[in-house]
């Protein structure tokens, strides 16, 4: 079975062409840790008491490949979302946790394409993959900028919208 660390290595594209793929993100991009230790949730205090399996549908004796992989993907998504832990920056936390959330949606949508036959649901799945992989790319890039500190360049040309009263 492919471990999450291996899978993350694949997403990271270590030694491969996938490094430049728009929806490949590195674990350290969202939580600053090494892929080899990515599964070691005990190192992060915020995930100590989380039992992801509590939230997943139970699999019966006649489990289908779809159900099996769906549970696996959802478990991975939950684990990856909790992995970064909270910082003192709402914007950074949102982006760091939303990236694996989107990757989970992409993984689930791909499963639907492999196993599902309703044309309109398949179309939705295609749109989820299309949109969310670009949003991952945007979130990774924005996260990198925000991690360097407050984005002072915004004052050069004020943002058109997305503002709030401080």
């Amino acid at each position: 079975m492919t471990s999450l660390a291996d899978r993350l290595r694949r997403l990271v594209g270590i030694g491969g062409a996938q490094e430049t793929e728009p929806f490949a993100f590195k674990p350290e991009d969202i939580c600053g840790i090494d892929p080899d230790n990515y599964l070691d949730s005990s190192r992060r205090s915020d995930t100590r008491n989380t039992r992801h399996s509590d939230h997943l549908p139970m699999l019966g004796p006649d489990v289908t490949p779809f159900q099996k992989q769906m549970n696996k993907d959802m478990a991975k998504m939950m684990q990856d979302m909790h992995a970064p832990g909270y910082s003192d920056d709402v914007n950074v936390d949102f982006l760091a946790m939303m990236i694996p959330h989107h990757q989970g949606a992409i993984d689930m949508a791909k499963l639907q394409l492999v196993h599902g036959d309703d044309p309109l649901t398949r179309r939705l799945a295609e749109e989820i993959i299309d949109g969310q992989q670009v949003e991952i790319q945007a979130m990774l890039a924005r996260l990198k900028i925000l991690r360097e500190g407050p984005d002072k360049s915004l004052s050069d040309f004020p943002a058109l919208d997305g503002t709030r009263k401080s």
């Binding site: 670009v134 949003e135 924005r142 915004l154 040309f157």
Partner: peptide
């Protein structure tokens, strides 16, 4: 060169669907 005219603004890439709706 100003942000409203750019494809990518400070790291934020619009989706293909959204890009043509930029001001």
């Amino acid at each position: 060169p100003r942000p409203p005219f750019r494809f990518v603004t400070r790291g934020v890439v619009p989706t293909h669907t959204a890009m043509v709706n930029k001001a």
